[in-house]
Design a protein around this nucleic acid. Sequence first.
DNA 1: ATGCGTGCAAAGGGTTTGCATACAG
DNA 2: CTGTATGCAAACCCTTTGCACGCAT
Lengths: 139, 139
Amino acid sequence: MTAGTVLDLGKFQESERRLTPQRQAVLKAFLELSQEHPTAEAIYQAARRYCPTVGIATVYRSLDLFVQMGLIQKAPSLNGTARYETQKVPHNHFVCLKCGRIYEFDKAQRPVVDKNIEKEGFEVISSSTVCFGYCPACR
Amino acid sequence: MTAGTVLDLGKFQESERRLTPQRQAVLKAFLELSQEHPTAEAIYQAARRYCPTVGIATVYRSLDLFVQMGLIQKAPSLNGTARYETQKVPHNHFVCLKCGRIYEFDKAQRPVVDKNIEKEGFEVISSSTVCFGYCPACR
DNA sequence: ATGCGTGCAAAGGGTTTGCATACAG
DNA sequence: CTGTATGCAAACCCTTTGCACGCAT
């Protein structure tokens, strides 16, 4: 669950960028939450456990930097609140139309995905590799 | 290109909702622009050609209403600006990581889509049914 | 008359930016 | 020293909301 296990931090050495305590905190926070495609606010709250003085602006600047470096990427959102995810190709998402949460599924093909998530309580309204509908918590 | 040709406006008759001049203007504007998944602002500008006094708040309220009625839906966005699209299942989108524009492709399968849009000048970075990358205008 | 719909302006939430300070090379 | 990075607060953009007025039933 350390940063090195998932992301290629060698990119920091190669660049003239500094891996400051704040950026480490943001990175650790993101990695802890990456399964749920966290918002900047969620990352901020988690990052403060590692670096209590970090500001929200630094969190945004760090996330932007990571995106720019290709370490992470933004996830598409329906409600205007940015979410972040690990760089993965391809994506298999379920986006809840009510709460905006994003769920990720593994590389199963579409029909399989549909059946799987319906078994888990999702109501699939529109489905391709990205699925829209209502998640169990919102039904 | 009239509203009736694409959207099921019968839903308005059935409901107790009124299809006011403002709502007609928003609907016409949306239909004109639906290919490019317009933002609320773009719809607002176009709607003023039909109803010069319409306010941006009314545009947002109308779009929300149409979404609620199932006539249209929101498109996922990377930059916090809402976009709207016709209700279609499934979706085949290309989302530009730079400008946020959304392009729609027809129901071709993924590998075909990738080749097609690369031929048209897109650089595909991540692809599923929704593709992310840079569009010709932004490369 | 009653209530839905509207325009305006203000408020709201999330994100970005300006600036002075702190720190690393 | 020189430039990058930070925290704070203000600014910013997009969207929503409060309110009084207008219009249809």
